[in-house]
């Protein structure tokens, strides 16, 4: 027994050291080529911007699903699409923007539904970003989130080593997922004119899905922060492919109900953003050019309605 345990522990310790060391292997491709490389660009642009401004927050449903130029022209103020990837987690997205909101700003949060479950604290993309692209962001991590990200950290480090050892191929980055895919507003635009590619819908969710209470608390606290800055907070549902929307109905209903309980409900009906299957590009969240335009028009209509009512209700 002692021999067995000693050998297993020795092997695990050796592996842990190798994996830990691998996290220091540089990944220049991520910075130069991958869309995560755009994270510092977006944060810098937001930091240097003046108010009043409109800030869009979310995952790739926002980065690949909004035309900020239309918003900027309609509302006559600069628009910053800070969104990149759902894997960064809503917690990181909100905390990155905290401190960069000022009086007169409008903050529009459009989180993927998965952010109210395990997605809130981020996943492998956040690890990759914090290791190789934006190490300054590590200060947003707390112990619980660090533990949550630990398996992804091991996985990411192991991947870097496997790539270095040529055990796995470096995944070729599609040009729509590069640092250069974004326009001056922060919208990914290269896919707008491309044809739809094959992808799977989200599978059906079981009734009574488990929600991440931390996500609701984090969102409420962020709303309070925005309110305290004298800015306007708007929460809109993400656009989602019709079939996936129906499959996720139980989750969407549960989120809507829970948000209403803490008075941070969506400012529009979720089914309004249930969009035709033909309007999507390569995932149930990524809209194509026509989809982006239709979704942006819906967002403008909603913001027109919400922002005209808001001063009366909040005042």
């Amino acid at each position: 027994m002692k021999r067995f345990i000693a050998r297993v522990l020795t092997f695990l310790a050796c592996t842990a050291v190798v994996v830990g060391m691998s996290s220091f292997i540089p990944n220049p491709m991520l910075v130069e080529r991958n869309l995560l490389g755009a994270l510092p660009d977006k944060i810098q642009r937001l930091t240097e911007s003046s108010s009043p401004k409109m800030v869009l927050i979310g995952g790739s449903n926002v980065s690949f699903g909004m035309n900020s130029e239309l918003l900027a022209n309609h509302f006559r103020q600069p628009v910053h699409n800070t969104a990149l990837h759902a894997g960064l987690g809503l917690k990181f997205m909100l905390e990155t923007c905290t401190g960069k909101i000022a009086e007169g700003d409008t903050v529009v949060v459009m989180p993927e539904y998965s952010q109210f479950q395990e997605g809130y604290e981020g996943s492998r993309e956040l690890v990759a970003a914090l290791c190789d692209v934006y190490p300054e962001g590590r200060k947003t991590l707390d112990l619980k989130q660090s533990l949550h990200l630990f398996p992804d950290f091991c996985s990411y480090s192991a991947t870097k080593l496997c790539q270095r050892l040529r055990l796995v191929q470096k995944t070729s980055v599609s040009r729509v997922y590069t640092r250069d895919s974004f326009n001056q507003y922060g919208d990914a635009v290269l896919h707008w004119d491309l044809p739809q590619t094959a992808f799977s819908d989200f599978p059906p969710k079981a009734p009574n899905p488990k929600l991440n209470e931390e996500a609701f608390i984090g969102l409420r606290e962020f709303k309070e922060h925005v309110d305290s800055c004298g800015a306007k907070f708007v929460l809109l549902p993400p656009s989602l492919k019709a079939v996936s929307f129906e499959n996720q109905k139980s989750l969407i209903d549960a989120i809507t109900k829970r948000l209403a309980e803490q008075n941070t409900e969506f400012d529009a009906e979720c089914k309004r953003y249930r969009m035709s299957d033909l309007l999507f590009f390569n995932t149930p969240y990524h809209l194509n050019g026509s989809g982006v335009e239709q979704r942006t028009v819906k967002v403008i209509e909603d913001l027109d309605r919400i922002l005209t009512v808001m001063p009366e209700t909040s005042g």
């Binding site: 592996t15 190798v18 091991c154 480090s157 496997c162 055990l167 796995v168």
Partner: peptide, 14 residues
């Protein structure tokens, strides 16, 4: 064994 562990970790998805 170590290579297999690395490959498993590398491909791990929760």
């Amino acid at each position: 064994y170590a290579l297999l562990v690395l490959l498993c970790l590398s491909h791990y998805r929760a």
